[in-house]
Amino acid sequence: MGQPLRKAEPETRSYRERIRELVEADRVEGARRLLAEALERGDHGEDLSRWERVLAKTKGRRNPEVALDFDRTPEITWIREKSDPYKGQWVALLGDQLLAHSASLDEVMAVLEANKPPRRPMVHYID
């Protein structure tokens, strides 16, 4: 004899809670679908704007106004060959020149702001 079907329990958790649960399980498309359902219903009384923002799919844009970058082989060579004394610090490099170094990223950026390099520097943490 078949078992009687169990009546589905009404959902008592908030949309925010259910979306978070899906996000934490890396079920991003499921979270997007649930968000879309919530927004369509519109009668849940929850502020879902943060989830709308973080789950959005953004179409980026070309930006021809930004200067091109360039070959970073000298910076990489510097990191491979000369970075040992700077472990635990941030370094700012332009070519094989060390522009600034400090355990504080703010200090490194302050040096760069005070002495603006002629080209875009590479900022890297020496682990």
Partner: peptide
């Protein structure tokens, strides 16, 4: 921003 060595850089947003 994805910086380009050639072509055009690309600006977008990520979570």
């Amino acid at each position: 921003r994805f910086l380009a060595d050639d072509g055009v850089p690309f600006d977008t947003e990520g979570t």
